[in-house]
């Protein structure tokens, strides 16, 4: 990438600029128009149906920032993103390493790991919600037949049980994508360096720590950044399983925003939250990429 940087728009020959202008304008429109709309919404009082009632300046932002539910949701969003992304990477790295080994049935195992990817997130959430149903859920049935619990546990009744379950489901559905990226990374590592390491007497653990992990670092970075962006904005799991409840105890920013915009009919404050989220996400990603050492080789 760095080598191509000199060919920025400023030095492009004029005809080229003319030729790419239409698509550039289209892209700008597609990206900038919604941002402009949200900016407009965020500084006005807007009715449920989009009617502008008046300019309110920063009121939507100050109102949102003063709202204890917003602050609780913000904090929970950080926990949610950290736990889901962290958990996903922790599970995906060994999964990818194992799937990269040569063993009988590897194709089948890879297919099985990838399979959840093909199920829509909403469908998966509904199935999980049923699995955790207090009266006839699979989880309670299994635990009861193992004699671990006497009667069905209402898992979704309390935020303390519901939220960790939602995080676990978030991890499960993020594994296929992450594993795919990491498998791509593993495929790019030449096999002979392991051979050399073996000759030098490095055991499997040493090989993993000294070779695999450093060479995989760029791919892990990509996986982390993409997952952060995706998980931070992930809506279906929490909305379908608990709708942010009970007592707003499982809201993350995106579900809280939806609640405000569509249940309570307040597009203005909701737009303010989405701008705050955009800023956080930018900062997050920028910071993370900045913290990574440059010499990946």
């Amino acid at each position: 990438m760095a080598a191509r940087r000199p060919t920025a728009i400023g030095v492009l020959p004029f005809p080229v600029l003319v030729m790419i202008a239409p698509s550039l304008l289209l892209a700008a429109f597609v990206i900038l128009y919604p941002v402009w709309e949200i900016l407009r919404l965020s500084v006005h009082e807007i009715s449920r149906f989009g009617l502008v009632r008046g300019f309110v300046g920063w009121d939507n932002f100050t109102g949102v920032l003063a709202d204890p539910s917003f602050r609780a949701s913000l904090w929970r969003t950080l926990i949610w993103t950290g736990a889901v992304v962290g958990g996903t990477v922790l599970v995906s790295v060994p999964t990818a390493v194992i799937l990269n080994l040569d063993f009988a049935g590897r194709g089948l195992a890879r297919a099985l790991v990838m399979l959840p990817w093909s199920v829509s997130l909403s469908m998966a959430s509904i199935v999980w919600l049923w699995s955790f149903n207090a009266d006839y859920g699979l989880i309670n049935t299994i635990l009861q037949s193992l004699g671990l619990i006497a009667r069905g546990v209402p898992w979704m009744a309390r935020p303390e049980t519901a939220f960790p379950i939602e995080i676990a489901i978030g991890v499960i559905v993020s594994i296929p994508f992450t594993t795919t990226i990491l498998l791509g990374g593993l495929a790019s590592i030449p096999g002979d360096i392991y051979e050399a390491a073996r000759i030098d007497g490095a055991g499997p653990l040493r090989q993993f720590r000294a070779l695999t992990l450093p060479l995989l670092r760029n791919f892990i970075n990509i996986a982390v950044v993409l997952n952060i962006i995706h998980v931070f904005n992930s809506f279906p799991i929490i909305w379908i399983m608990t709708q942010g409840g009970p007592d707003d105890g499982t809201h993350i920013l995106i579900t809280y925003l939806y609640d405000l915009a569509f249940r309570l009919g307040k597009p203005g404050p909701a737009a303010a939250i989405s701008l705050i989220m955009l800023a956080i996400l930018f900062a997050f990603t920028f910071l993370y990429l900045r913290l990574q050492p440059k010499d990946a080789s």
Binding site: A134, R151, V153, P154, M156, A157, R158, P246, D247
Partner: peptide, 8 residues
């Protein structure tokens, strides 16, 4: 009541 009404 049923246990855990916030799940119902």
């Amino acid at each position: 009541t049923e246990p855990g009404p916030t799940d119902y």
